[in-house]
Write a protein that binds this DNA or RNA. Structure first.
Ligand SMILES: NC(=O)c1ccc[n+]([C@@H]2O[C@H](COP(=O)([O-])OP(=O)(O)OC[C@H]3O[C@@H](n4cnc5c(N)ncnc54)[C@H](O)[C@@H]3O)[C@@H](O)[C@H]2O)c1
Ligand SMILES: NC(=O)c1ccc[n+]([C@@H]2O[C@H](COP(=O)([O-])OP(=O)(O)OC[C@H]3O[C@@H](n4cnc5c(N)ncnc54)[C@H](O)[C@@H]3O)[C@@H](O)[C@H]2O)c1
Lengths: 206, 206
DNA sequence: CTTACTTTGTGAATGATTTCACAAAGTACG
DNA sequence: CGTACTTTGTGAAATCATTCACAAAGTAAG
């Protein structure tokens, strides 16, 4: 549900960019392939933002949604594991947009990692993790290390006070209950795609 | 649901690797953070693979699950857009494992793309898309191009007979109903993580 | 001000997914 | 063979999510 809010935020941004000032739940829904009642219900969880018979003011609604998602504040992020994937993530400006600040990268081999990237995010040795982020508020750690060390690195991150982890490693990591973890797992998507391609008949089972 | 099957497949592989021959739904569930009834129900959709009072033979079950997912066959994949992210994807052996064959990459600038990668997948000019994949069976296209060209490239892919698209571009793409599309959208995950992080801090205060 | 129209916000209905709970079917072993 | 366990497969119940449908509240225009 929160992911849909994030989609609303994105589409509102594009409406704003196009100079559109007024929008209906039906139009938002159409653009995202959703039902208009869904859009209204989602928003209704957080307040009444619309005007019956008119719709929503794009600017207003966007501000509201960003407020709900808290993308109007700074989120401090670090990256652990600056390999193939980590390098791509570092130079992705999509992360830097709207409130996310990438502070540092960490790797066992910071030299060669540094060589790969063209971003100006400093990359430190993973040995210095604790000392570098000591006393800093770190909201989110992005995890892109090899599977074998994922749990060990996670434990260290948690000890350092990281509040949330975006995990690209195809493995379940164990964390205390108060730590948020989100998984991004391409192979899963690929495999399910494969299933539907082969087997369009049975695809209804989802 | 299919994504969970994919998880089962992965965990069974790791059990096999560890030399474990027998497994219960409860143990699979524990390892994946699921309910054991869920595991049994999922499998029950496709047949009866277990032995009451015993559990499942790891080898057997893994074969069955791979058969269901069709990861026992070859899936032919191409990559379109060999930039930061595309490069990482090309050198990800996780894709090459189990049945996925990455045939070619395509880019507007194949020279500089070629320079970036250390894989031996050939990279062609996007102008030659049609001629290169003419008459070939291509199951899945991985899309990692800039937002502005995503729809246009998608249209060409569909015309070329691609059956499914794994879309990394943070935008809804329009395709005919018989084409499968799956979205991988990191920003959405990051934003929803941000939401829960903030919420937790608020929760502590109250 | 009034009439015709639009679109919201939201209970109620429907649909989907997850969990419970237990009979049935097996194992293990004396 | 029989008794004590274990674990499956699966209806039924519970939970969660989506869609319907409509009164209420607005706009627009004469
Ligand atoms: N490359 C992809 O496209 C892709 C796709 C999906 C998932 N993944 C997953 O992401 C992770 C990284 O993949 P990759 O392709 O970038 O691999 P990679 O080997 O290129 O990168 C891993 C990086 O982690 C560093 N590292 C190793 N041990 C470390 C430690 N203890 N602390 C900090 N850094 C350490 C390595 O030096 C390396 O730079 C893997 O778990 C992989 O399964 C990758
Ligand atoms: N880099 C990331 O970590 C990341 C994360 C999430 C999403 N994405 C998305 O993935 C896409 C690619 O991101 P990126 O960081 O790799 O960008 P990028 O600019 O590095 O790569 C895009 C590549 O596409 C090529 N290209 C441009 N037009 C093309 C066309 N018509 N046909 C074929 N190729 C074409 C470019 O030459 C370039 O090599 C973007 O839509 C981005 O939003 C990237």
């Amino acid at each position: 549900m929160i992911k849909r809010l994030s989609l609303y935020s994105r589409i509102l941004q594009s409406f704003e960019f196009q100079g559109i000032e007024k929008i209906s739940s039906a139009e938002v829904a159409r653009r995202l392939g959703l039902n208009s009642a869904q859009v209204r219900k989602d928003l209704a969880c957080f307040g009444q933002f619309g005007i019956p018979g008119f719709g929503y003011h794009v600017n207003d609604l966007r501000k509201q949604v960003r407020g709900i998602l808290k993308t109007d504040r700074e989120m401090r992020v670090i990256l652990v594991g600056v390999g193939n994937l980590g390098t791509a993530l570092l130079s992705y400006r999509g992360f830097l947009k709207q409130g996310f600040t990438m502070l540092f990268g960490f790797d066992v081999n910071p030299r060669s990692a540094e060589g790969r990237t063209r971003s100006n995010v400093p990359i430190y040795d993973i040995r210095d993790l604790e000392s570098k982020i000591e006393g800093q508020r770190i909201d989110i750690a992005v995890l892109a290390v090899p599977v074998e060390v994922a749990q060990e690195v996670t434990n260290r991150l948690v000890k350092c006070g990281v509040l949330a982890i975006l995990n690209f490693v195809p493995m379940r990591i164990e964390v205390p209950a108060h730590i948020q973890v989100r998984y991004v797992d391409f192979s899963l998507e690929l495999e399910s795609l494969a299933y539907y391609v082969q087997d369009r008949e049975k695809a209804k089972r989802e």
